[in-house]
């Protein structure tokens, strides 16, 4: 039997319409492996995005969330604990148990 993968809780929120891609639920508690199994590096936001796509993105129109290269679609803001991820190192930010990551799609209507 494969050893159980150790996980940590990450609170993920979607807003601005992105929640429709994730079972119409704006708030999720994600059990994220503490290491990226592909290279055993500590789980960062980049790994969280691929984890979300693989395990939680049920909608077929994935282009609303990620591009073909696996990076986030332009126009989506990411906030780590309510702070713009650009202040936190973007995809490289290493997640800690209990972190809150928000994905907000930019709105244009008015």
């Amino acid at each position: 039997m494969a050893p159980e993968i150790e996980t940590m809780p990450i609170w993920v929120d979607f807003a601005g319409g992105l929640q429709t891609l994730f079972s119409n639920k704006p708030n999720h508690m994600i059990s994220l492996p503490i290491f990226n199994p592909s290279d055993f590096s500590p789980a960062n936001v980049g790994f969280l995005i691929s984890h979300l796509v693989k395990n939680h993105l049920k909608h077929p129109q994935t282009e609303f969330f990620v591009q073909e290269d696996g990076h986030l679609t332009p126009g989506i803001l990411v906030l780590i604990n309510d702070v713009d991820w650009e202040l936190e190192g973007e995809e490289e930010y290493e997640l800690k148990p209990g972190d809150n990551v928000i994905f907000v799609s930019t709105m244009h209507g008015g």
């Binding site: 282009e63 609303f64 679609t73 332009p74 126009g75 799609s105 930019t106």
Partner: peptide
């Protein structure tokens, strides 16, 4: 900006 096909 978001790709045109994802703008509503």
């Amino acid at each position: 900006p978001p790709p045109a096909n994802t703008q509503l």
